[in-house]
């Protein structure tokens, strides 16, 4: 710790020196320049004006940006995601929140096998076996809330594509991408790193893409590696 402490002091001492020189410099320039006093007032007024303008402009820029949610809203998002997840696991389709539904397909398949092909996609899948004697397969794609630091991630990343063809369901993940965001904070992370990370955690909700299949019992569902679903 003490080693680290001393190392961290050095830049501070350097900064101390720089700012000390700066203060001396401004003092000596104001010695030389008579109009300094008048111009000082102008500089200050202009600077404050620019700052206030920046605040207003920032609000204007945001008009087409994302909404910033409060921590409470995040909590409800997380709750709703959990409710969906539980209902999904228990096959309680009636409890699915319709607002998560993105797409649905109905497909008459021939034969008694339905092949699911997952191309690198990490969707969650569940199958409800129906007692129907028909060849009709229903597929529904759901997506729960994903927000992170104010960005709606669902919008940022395209969904995996789902194709239903003959007796195949092909899910293709989107190619690997990298996105960088600049994020600003009003708070001083300097003092309360922990505090800030907490709030960061609280302001994040990560949802999933769900595929819900309704398949008549007599049809076998296999994935391309030959695994069988029951």
């Amino acid at each position: 710790m003490s080693n680290f402490g001393i190392l961290s002091i050095l830049p501070i001492l350097g900064l101390l020196f720089i700012i000390w020189r700066l203060l001396r410099l401004t003092k000596s320039t104001s010695n030389r320049i008579n109009w300094a006093q008048r111009s000082n007032k102008w500089i200050l007024c202009i600077y404050v004006g620019v700052l206030l303008l920046a605040v207003v402009v920032y609000e204007a820029i945001q008009a087409d940006g994302e909404k910033v949610y409060t921590q409470k809203e995040y909590a409800t998002f997380i709750d709703e995601n959990n409710v969906f997840q539980q209902a999904f696991e228990k096959n309680e389709e009636s409890k699915f929140d319709p607002k998560f539904l993105i797409e649905e397909w109905k497909q008459q398949i021939e034969g008694d096998t339905l092949e699911v092909i997952l191309n690198g996609s990490n969707v969650r899948m569940n199958i409800e076996w129906t007692n129907s004697k028909e060849q009709l397969v229903e597929a529904k794609m759901y997506k729960t809330y994903s927000y992170m630091g104010g960005i709606n991630m669902e919008k940022e990343i395209p969904l995996p594509t789902l194709e239903v063809k003959d007796n195949q369901i092909i899910l293709t993940a989107i190619p690997q991408k990298e996105r960088t965001y600049y994020r600003f904070t009003n708070e001083l992370t300097f003092f309360s790193t922990v505090n800030n990370l907490d709030s960061w955690e609280q302001r994040r909700v990560i949802g999933h893409t769900y595929i819900y299949l309704k398949v008549p019992k007599h049809i076998n569902v296999i994935d391309k590696d030959g695994l069988q679903f029951y």
Binding site: K27, S30, N31, N34, A36, N40
Partner: peptide
């Protein structure tokens, strides 16, 4: 103060 002129 150096920031003030004689008139000031």
């Amino acid at each position: 103060p150096d920031s003030l002129t004689l008139a000031d």
